[in-house]
């Protein structure tokens, strides 16, 4: 049951987006998110829509697969829309009881929902088309300047990649502990929410203990293999820009310039 969880929902394919350097994709996602918050009016909306459709097409991930990601934020979308709809002051279009819907409210609600939905869709292109390992590699490399202000970039990305490696192991372990306790008469399914949460405690304690033991073992194994931080390390698969990455950067810059100029001149 619990083993069905998938994390880092990578969608394997050999599209151009999949083959891009993760740094380009991170940059692209950042620019795209920025563009979502600076576009204004219908022409801007059309521009970002065109951009999004283009990215999704390039990634060869089926659109239906991506829309699934929207379900998770449906509640947030509805709440945001409601707040914008009812609480924006201006010319009332419809009013009933204490509520009134204004023209401005309608407009800002519409744009807000579009922004959020596009945000999720756009960033899921990144996670669907990049393996978790590439993602951490790309992050380590593009965030390297932060090292200068004392942020341990290498260590953070090492932690992330180890976490990814251990998720399936810990999930399996949880399953094992659960079964062992079910076999001795534990009850995880019945009762109200609080009761069920309480029944999780005897599950979490052994899980935590074993996770700490694993962490200890792993640290020792890493030390035995001469790991002592990021300094002086080489890479088996260093990130290297290819020609297509340069082209992608240009495309991203072009896209951003277009959205920006639409905002300024229209």
């Amino acid at each position: 049951m619990i083993r069905d969880i998938t994390i880092g929902q990578y969608y394997p394919s050999d599209s151009i987006i999949h083959r891009l350097d993760p740094r380009v994709k991170l940059m692209g996602t950042l620019v795209y998110v920025l563009s979502l918050f600076i576009f204004r009016g219908v022409p801007g909306f059309l521009a970002v829509t065109a951009g999004l459709v283009f990215f999704i097409r390039c990634s060869k991930v089926p659109f239906g697969y991506m829309v699934k990601g929207l379900k998770a934020i449906a509640v947030i979308l509805v709440i945001t829309a409601a707040f914008n709809l009812f609480l924006t002051p201006g010319e009332p279009l419809v009013s009933f009881w204490k509520f009134k819907i204004t023209q401005q409210g309608l407009k800002s609600a519409g744009f807000m929902v579009v922004r959020l939905a596009y945000l999720v869709l756009g960033s899921s292109v990144l996670t669907l088309a990049t393996t978790p390992n590439q993602l951490t590699d790309g992050m380590e490399k593009s965030l390297r300047p932060l090292n200068k202000i004392g942020i341990p970039v290498h260590e953070v990305s090492m932690i992330m990649s180890i976490a990814l490696r251990f998720i399936p192991i810990l999930v399996e372990e949880t399953d094992k502990i659960m079964k062992a306790q079910l076999a001795r008469g534990a009850d995880f399914e019945s009762g109200n929410l609080i009761k069920r949460a309480k029944s999780m405690v005897p599950l979490l304690v052994p899980l935590f203990i074993s996770a700490f033991r694993r962490a200890n073992d792993l640290a020792m194994a890493m030390e035995a293999r001469c790991y002592n931080g990021g300094a002086g390390r080489t890479k088996m698969k260093p990130l290297k820009y290819a020609r297509r990455d340069g082209a992608a950067y240009l495309l991203i810059a072009g896209y951003f310039a277009a959205v920006l100029s639409l905002r300024i001149w229209l």
């Binding site: 978790p132 180890i162 490696r165 073992d217 890493m222 790991y227 088996m236």
Partner: peptide, 18 residues
């Protein structure tokens, strides 16, 4: 508890990388 990477060859490379 002693394999670090999520791909076999990358794990083998961990020591030489270090």
């Amino acid at each position: 508890n002693q394999l670090i990477a999520s791909v076999v060859e990358e794990d083998v490379a961990f020591g030489p990388e270090n």
